[in-house]
């Protein structure tokens, strides 16, 4: 017999192998590769083992941190749910009287912000990735990224001192000419410090992160699909509709979710722009009386809170935590369902 060739140890199967084997275009966008199969028999090299353990540890850390935050919010926040008048901030008679309007305010302000930010962000990302000459695309993309790095206090100051006074005239005009529209009803604010102003400031704040995510997703559109569209006689806009958007849909939603997270949690910009009215739940956009948000309320009340009031504020945090989870989950569901064959 000749020399015995040692059998090559089977490479440990992992998610990576699936990445390599996937033919381009067959993987639905945004879909995970699925759970890595159980380790097959074989030797694992030291480097692979170290990398795997490091990655597993990092993944576990996220879960531990999330669970820790959740437990803290539950343990400290739940007692406040049963608290009565006297123990709660702003003289609330029950926790829900406090939490309801604030939860509404948070969701309302964030939803308005996304409503303004998403179309603009998608357009900005399209311009950078599809239309801008290459010389401008790079610097412009970097500029958008810099916008994302501006501290929210600065946005708040700008909103309060520059933007709000600018908008007062517009609000008066809207109220005069479109006051019949329920959202524009009521006496318009003379200072411009309204929920609409706050939402617009929020929109400017979340725009860069959405635009940055969309830009990256648009740039990864498979060249095969773009060529297919062009060869069918599609114009540039039609190519974007045929090849870019369907591929980018889940990416756009992911970007919007990141933006929503920032908008829901944003404290300073809201706290600085708005002078809130306690327990108010109103969809009117142009008035001096405005609902407050959970994050801003926590920031405003925490310095003077003691005893059960602290628990109530932590309970508000728990509500915000739950809202964020719910919205994220819903968005994922929507994306998953809109993909054929998924």
């Amino acid at each position: 017999m000749g020399t015995v060739v040692a059998e090559r140890p089977a490479v440990r199967d992992s998610g990576l192998n699936r990445l390599v084997g996937q033919p381009e275009g067959t993987r639905p966008p945004g879909k995970r590769w699925g759970k890595a199969p159980k380790a097959s028999t074989g030797v694992e090299r030291a480097g692979d083992r170290a990398a795997r353990r490091l990655a597993t540890a990092a993944g576990a850390t996220i879960l531990v941190a999330l669970a820790g935050v959740g437990l803290f919010l539950l343990a400290r926040g739940l007692p406040a749910v049963r608290a009565g008048q006297g123990d709660l901030p702003e003289g609330a008679t029950s926790f829900w009287q406090l939490a309801g309007p604030l939860a509404f305010g948070s969701v309302w302000a964030a939803a308005l912000a996304l409503l303004f930010a998403i179309p603009v962000a998608v357009a900005v990302a399209l311009f950078i990735s599809m239309y801008a000459p290459r010389r401008f695309a790079g610097p412009l993309g970097a500029t958008v990224d810099v916008l994302a790095a501006i501290p929210s206090v600065v946005y708040g100051l700008w909103g309060l001192m520059v933007f709000a006074p600018m908008t007062a005239g517009l609000y008066r005009w809207l109220s005069d000419h479109m006051g019949w529209f329920p959202l524009f009803a009521g006496k318009p604010s003379a200072t411009g410090r309204t929920i609409l102003t706050a939402a617009l400031v929020l929109a400017v704040m979340v725009l860069p992160i959405i635009a940055a995510v969309c830009r990256e997703v648009f740039l990864q559109t498979p060249a095969l699909s773009v060529e297919a569209a062009l060869a069918l006689g599609a114009t540039r806009w039609e190519t974007i509709r045929l090849a870019v958007f369907p591929f980018a849909r889940s990416g756009i939603v992911s970007g919007a979710m990141l933006g929503l997270g920032r908008a829901l949690g944003e404290t300073m910009a809201i706290a600085m722009v708005l002078s809130p009215t306690p327990f108010l739940m109103s969809v009117r956009l142009l008035n001096n009386t405005n609902p407050n948000t959970i994050a801003a309320s926590i920031a405003q009340n925490f310095p003077e809170a003691y005893g059960m009031e602290v628990n109530a504020l932590i309970g508000l945090g728990l509500i915000l935590f739950v809202i964020t989870f719910a919205v994220n989950y819903l968005a994922r569901r929507v994306v998953a369902r809109s993909q054929p064959g998924a």
Binding site: P222, G233, L242
Partner: peptide, 30 residues
């Protein structure tokens, strides 16, 4: 490109579209 059609080296149906919508993609543009 509407008068001169093209088929590529790698099959490139639009991945998110049904078979029917793929066939109609070009027709719907016109």
């Amino acid at each position: 490109r509407q008068r001169v059609g093209m088929v590529f080296q790698r099959p490139n149906p639009f991945p998110t579209m049904s078979i029917k919508d793929n066939v109609l993609a070009g027709v719907r543009l016109q």
